[in-house]
Amino acid sequence: MVVMTILTCISYVPDTAAKIGVTADGSGLELGGAKYILNPYDEFAIEEALLQRERHGGRVVALTVGSDAAKEILRTALAMGADSAAIIAATGLDSFGVAANIAAYANAINASLVLLGRQSIDHDSFQMASTVGALLGIPAISVVSKLDIEGDRVRAERDIEGGKEVLEATLPLVVSVQKGINNPRYPKLPEIMKAKSKPIESVEPVAVSPRAAMVRYQVPQLKRANKILGDSDADITEFVRLLHEEAKVI
């Protein structure tokens, strides 16, 4: 059997707690001072890649698309156990541009399994697995909470409204993973130290025309009634009245 190449795609995103602002003219975002982290869902993708390698052999390649600073998360992936890491140095791409670059790299290394987090917490769009899969002409399964591989046959479970779907597929395949699929390991200090000196491959980006543009940004205006009451019997009665008569939701 050929050695399985598992590509795990990870992104470098502002911490959830980061303050995100909009420039005065609404044309751009103000991310100044935001702390950047490994996208939380991508930890599950890295861990799943390592677990599948433990079961089936092969190698794990970690990839990110972004600025030089994003190398930090590739070091995390290497410390967790990825065999190699690559960065496509490109910024300002739209989602399609990122997907096109991931697909080109997956093709170049002949990846048989591409693993991603179900969403990146900056744009929350859940689209990367499907887009990369379609570009590669292979199937994709998103929001996966269980992944079993035997030979080239795959059985997966994915979360849907009110339950889950069981799917069957064959490799090559793109999978986005969900919290609960595994428990990501913490890299140990010696591995963290070793990862610091491992080479990171730099890949030339593929030029792609953007398909969508963010033309304006705004901070959502909170139009909340904000009627905060106490806990007296009269207040509880009033709370129910407000929900019933004013908000008309009960």
Binding site: P14, I20, H123, M214, V215, R216, Y217, V219
Partner: peptide
């Protein structure tokens, strides 16, 4: 975007 902290016109 960003967990609802910002909205973008696409």
């Amino acid at each position: 975007l960003y967990a609802g902290k910002v909205r973008a016109t696409v």
